[in-house]
Design a protein around this nucleic acid. Structure first.
Lengths: 86, 86
DNA sequence: CTCATACTACATACTATAGTTAGCATATTA
DNA sequence: TAATATGCTAACTATAGTATGTAGTATGAG
């Protein structure tokens, strides 16, 4: 599993959730996913599927496009940090 | 499984692949995924994971952001067709 | 402060299903 | 018609999805 990718994805989800000021449990309700599963995703412990990305985006009331826009930006930032340390 | 979502995703992948003028097999090589798996994804038979979305995007040399931008647009089109038939 | 409440982390464990491959059928095209 | 590309079935194995329970942490009211 690509842990780095999942972790970055988790960070994005946390960011959006905090923005909406809701708990993992509340996000679970809204996206029809279990409370602990949300936690796992946020900690980057699971390689989420397309269907659940869609559910999360609906629960967070943001488009998948926006999620991946942020994710791509985050990945680029990480890449640059990595390259600087070569 | 959300078949509609997977099918729409598959259509996007086909679109990008044809744009690059490569076969499923070639895309398989480039993204490090099996030929038949690419076929399944394009036919919307599998609920793909984030990791493999990432692999595909690299094999197709496009950003995930762009994939989901197109996917969101396609979903909106499908929604409108659905609403018109109410 | 301190107690209660809400929130999150984490460790299992189970069951669904994604990921992977082989093989053969069926187009498609040169 | 030979070569190339795709569809599809079937099987296996890896792991995502789901849930319970417990422990720890943060926060706010009294």
């Amino acid at each position: 599993m690509n842990a780095e990718l999942s972790k970055n994805f988790g960070k994005i989800i946390i960011e959006f959730r905090k923005e909406k000021k809701i708990s993992q449990e509340e996000l679970g309700f809204r996206s029809n996913l279990h409370r602990t599963y949300i936690g796992m995703i946020e900690r980057g412990e699971k390689n989420i599927t397309l269907e659940n990305i869609d559910k999360l985006s609906k629960g967070l009331d943001v488009s998948m496009k926006l999620i991946f826009e942020k994710l791509n930006k985050l990945i680029i930032i990480w890449k640059n940090i990595f390259l600087k340390n070569l």
